[in-house]
Design a protein around this nucleic acid. Structure first.
Lengths: 220, 220, 220, 220
DNA sequence: GATGAATGAGAATTCATTCAT
DNA sequence: GATGAATGAATTCTCATTCAT
């Protein structure tokens, strides 16, 4: 009984702490999604209803907090991407896979701002990105093998385009909420193989946005 | 005589002041292009070889300085765009017109950051953007009338795509300097009319990126 | 029976508590000896494997913890000094007595820092210091009565010199580990009575470093 | 006339700034001398009657301010030492030279604390220390050549002893203002060559407190 | 009794903007 | 008109101490 009580106590404590942690992360997600990474930790603390020191106890650095928020988004992205990759029709699968990637930028100012910054190169995030990349790659390969998309387009190309569209979508979300969808469609429409003209540069090698694999080498 | 002297004095001062102003703008252009809008005014002052107060005499607010720098870039953009629009071959004209638009983002961190922010909505900049838009619109119309680009693509669509590509190009310039060129080509390749599928949303109305004018209404 | 159980419970807890207390003191000794008194309580708690609150339960204030750590060192010092004072040869006895006093500063950054601060004036520490002083005094008297050390040198003088040498020894331990030993020897070499010149000031009365007692008055 | 006015203006400005700088340094000297280097910059700012930002404008880092304060003391020390080194009687010269060195520690808590810390290794301070060392060395050599001080004592030994005595003198200044003077005399009394016993360790090599030179090598 | 969590009170530092010369 | 100086208002981060479990 005593043990149980003790465990309960510990559990409760942890539960409390985790609730607080959740509140911090939620508040941070909201604040940074709305105001970008320049929002002050104090703002987050206020929205979370805690003191700033509480936040710094969990996240030694503001960057750690930002990274945690981004990771959280990416964890959701991994799930969404996996689900999308399971769509049977290859074309639909690729479109959906890429759509969720665009959405993550559109919906979160912090994520959009973080494109190409050191925050995107943190190990944990890299792992999540790798999972997303794997799904995307599979989806792209299926479509290219089905001959529905020009073969010289690489995953990096597509990922970059999605990030790009997502970023401006985010920035213009208030003024023109669906403008980015048109862009997205235009890009996808134009991926058909029959209109492929030789692409100028060498395929992009970018760990952040879809690495090239051996299978790519043969194509280049 | 005294008046003349006074005027001379004032003229001299004005000449000096204008030279100072030029130096400030040049320095600010460089600094903000490299470091983004978060670079301090003091940094700009140092590079310009003037005191900070001198900058604030000309630009009451840092935002005013930022706006002036962006305007300067856009003044150059207007010229470049006009020249590009005069290219005979409609396809080449459009490509070049759009290319200079992409370049402005790639080359300038401040401009890339400013996409969709209030800085882009300042009246003076709006006017310059309108001029650019006019050229772009003309270029697009020519190509569409020549049947080389799908007719349902609007100027806003294209401008958004260029801004998007320019932004990621800017962000990834260090890691993958030419990645954005591939994206740019992919998008242009895909604009052919034969592959057009109906675009989902209504055409975008966005003053910042290619406004539709009354004359456009008939086209929609 | 219930009482006994309760007492057992308390006893068990006390045993636990005392083990905890020991671990805290050990950890604190190490941490403060290495990093000085500015080391955080959290650091101590971590090294001790306890929570910070546990520390504050035993030591209401960080200063109390610091004092306890210093006291612990001085308890050891009392022992070492007593043992040294028992050395037969008066000269050797004094040297050894003083050497252990120097060592306490050299080996412990906290103790070195605390010289002359309120931490050194706490009652409990005073008592320990008194014991040390008694031994030192005896050792000094023996040597002076043997005519091996100039008679006008007081215990306070010597204690001050040892603290001084110990302090710089501590500070320069990394750069010149044995520099203080030379200083120590130079001082002791110079204590011979044949070279005594009249000392300028009145004998120092310093409770912290060798107090004069009533019995001393007759000597002055 | 206009030029003169302009120059006057500039001069006044500079004068004002310099006066402020002087006030900052004076305030900092006082505060740090009394409270040690842990006193907050805000405290200094308050005593100087300026904002903290003003201080940080001149001294980018608190350490820079501390270093400046110490340098200031050492500049005075250089002067005092030079003057002392010119005393004819070698013994008096050495005593006076060393006395001013002790005094700098006694009178300034910051300087006393800084012994052996990185603050003492800053290049500018090193230069000043070198000048002091040169004077001290000369003074020591004179006395040793006159046979008045044991030849195996090095400058580093003496400097260390002076720093040591100065430190405890500083710490005990309130309780026993002149206690350190007795210590100082005891040490000097004991430097006579006739009582020299072989010193145990090798001569200390310590840039901070009197480097060994070639002439020392022959002695070791 | 023990503990991890929470926090208020600082601390250093930065920067856009205003002032005095 | 130009300038360096001054500063108030933030911002990130730390830490001794208190609280809730």
């Amino acid at each position: 009984m005593i043990d149980m009580d003790a465990e309960k106590g510990i559990d409760n404590l942890r539960a409390d702490a985790q609730r607080n942690l959740a509140r911090i992360l939620t508040a941070a997600s909201e604040v940074f999604a709305e105001q970008g990474g320049e929002a002050s930790v104090a703002t987050v603390a206020e929205r979370a209803g805690v003191g700033t020191a509480t936040i710094f106890r969990r996240f030694p650095t503001k960057d750690d907090l930002l990274a945690a928020v981004i990771e959280r988004r990416f964890r959701q992205l991994v799930e969404d991407t996996r689900r999308a990759a399971e769509i049977e029709q290859p074309g639909d699968a690729l479109r959906q896979v890429m759509l969720v990637s665009v959405a993550i930028y559109v919906e979160d100012r912090l994520v959009a701002e973080a494109i190409g910054t050191p925050l995107f190169r943190r190990p944990r995030l890299r792992e999540l990105q790798a999972e997303v990349t794997a799904c995307k790659e599979q989806a792209l390969r299926r479509v290219q093998e089905a001959g529905e998309v020009r073969p010289d387009v690489t995953l990096a190309d597509l990922s970059l385009l999605m990030a790009a569209i997502g970023f401006v979508g985010q920035r213009l979300d208030a003024d023109a909420p669906d403008a980015w969808r048109r862009c997205y469609h235009i890009v996808f429409d134009g991926l058909r193989p029959e209109i492929a003209r030789p692409l100028s540069g060498a395929p992009v090698v970018l760990k952040q946005f879809g690495a090239r694999h051996d299978s790519d080498a043969s194509r280049s």
